[in-house]
Design a protein around this nucleic acid. Structure first.
Length: 131
RNA sequence: UCAGCAAGCCGUUCUAUCGCUCUGAUGCAAAUCAGUGAGGAAAGUCCGGGCAACACAGAGCAUCCUGCUUCCUAACGGGAAGGCUUCACAACUGUGAAGACGGAAAGUGCCACAGAAAAUAUACUUCCCGCCCCGGCGGGUAAAGGUGAAAACGUGAGGUAAGAGCUCACGGUACAGUAUGGCGACAUGCUGUGCGGUAAACCCCAGGAGUUGAAAGACCAAAUAGGUUCCGGAAGCGAAGCUGCUCGUUUCCUUAUCCCGUACGCACGGGAUUAUCCGGAAUGGGUAGGUCGUUAGACCCUGCGAGCAAUUGCAGGGCCAGAUAAAUGAUAGAAUUUUCGAUUUCGGAAAACAGAACCCGGCUUACAGGCUUGCUUUUUUU
RNA sequence: GUACCCAUAGUUCAAUGGAUAGAAUUGCAGAUUCCGGUUCUGCUGAUGGGGGUUCGAAUCCCUCUGGGUACA
């Protein structure tokens, strides 16, 4: 359950455009999460996209490091909480995780914040669908 | 032994757990197992080539690039060896460094300020001669002064009213001719003629450049709509021919336009106008994909030759990333190195520059630390 | 990936290779005013960094840095 395969990544240009056009977003420093419920063809319950702005991190090495850490976080924590939640409500989700910090954060700090972000995501979904 | 300079090389390692890319095996599949996975600069995109598509009789013009010689190379604006110039050390003969290093005697332009004058010379203070008669005029001159980044080759002698390459000697530099040495750039000698700088000003000379770049280009099958062309069938108060007329038959043409429905377009429904529909094939375009191009190569390692060297010949061995919103990671522990606190044991911190995207050869820039070789130098010992 | 362009006061722009790099505006100080505004006067610059050519470089050449444009 800790794998991170191609089906779980968001690659289609159309879906990405849809996500950033219609999706709703919130901020948990140092992340910005954009999400949108959507019917998917693939088997995985969610597709995710990870990005780091080139303006803040000029060197490719730094961007790679942050993207790898964020992917690792998603891989390790998705199965604890997010996937069971999504199956329970039987929805599929498009996700985009942007890094908006100005410095390269420690892994432990990022881990703590990422868990908070997942909780926020669940709350946001529930509140929007109750109404 | 210490320090500096130059050249070349390396540029953290191991274990465990959980993952990712690609390849292979097993398997209907899910999956499992095994192997594999960033650099010397992968960077900048400054040059050159391969590869691909398009273009292409030949010549000239324009534009851009290069610029001492010979060689290396697939090619180069790269490299090697050499020549020349300049600078430094040294001291008369070397050592080291740097150099966009063709042409100013084809032509044009420019050379601020200062200065008499910045290039067909000219004449401010001087100097000399003559005249008027005591500071002016006419002539000669360019040595001295001062200016400037640069002043009509420099020094000495002769010469002269005073002077001047005007003449001579020595020297500098450029061109032409000639002899010797060198493949050549060039060097040395002799003869003659000349003497501001600037071509990273225009320009001239010699050589070179077709254009566009893997988002190049080749192929594949889907789903959706149905543009164009062709074929077949049916239809028409359509047109024309055959005919005196009708039927019939042949050829052509049409198969759409307008209005309303929230209505501009598409689709759908209805209505109006003399009047249209169906089936098949080919071709073009749009949308989102896949495969090839794509990693075995001007490749790497070792040995033996050729060459002063760059480089290259032969033999043997090896396979070394291939992603596509883009893999090469995260965490924990240990070792190694550096550094700080401490003091011989422990604790903390750090480990450079930096991340492939069609592939090669260079150049440029970034880089903690370490190793090797050569040269110079300091101290000590013999 | 490929092809190109730009960089000058805080800001917007000038300057033929030649004095101390100008103009507008902003800021600061002073004058004027009872106070403020307007007006007047004065002051404030690493020509993006480094090297080269030149007697002399913002300008010419090389290189690095930063910013931008075009091509699907």
């Amino acid at each position: 359950m800790q794998s991170f395969k191609k089906e779980e990544r968001l690659c289609s240009i159309k879906l990405i455009e849809k996500l950033f056009h219609n999706g709703s977003s919130f901020l948990v420093y140092p992340f910005r999460i954009v999400w949108l419920p959507e019917e998917l063809q693939s088997e995985s319950p969610a597709q995710v996209l990870v990005s780091v702005p080139k303006k803040k991190f000029k060197k490719a090495v730094d961007r790679n490091l942050l993207k790898r850490r964020m992917r690792e976080l998603y891989r390790l924590h998705k199965s604890e909480d997010l996937y069971p939640f999504l199956k329970e409500h039987s929805v599929n989700l498009l996700l985009a995780i942007n890094y908006i910090g100005n410095d390269i954060a420690e892994y432990s700090f990022m881990e703590k914040k990422f868990k908070d972000a997942l909780q926020r995501l669940k709350k946001a979904y529930l509140s929007s669908h109750v109404n």
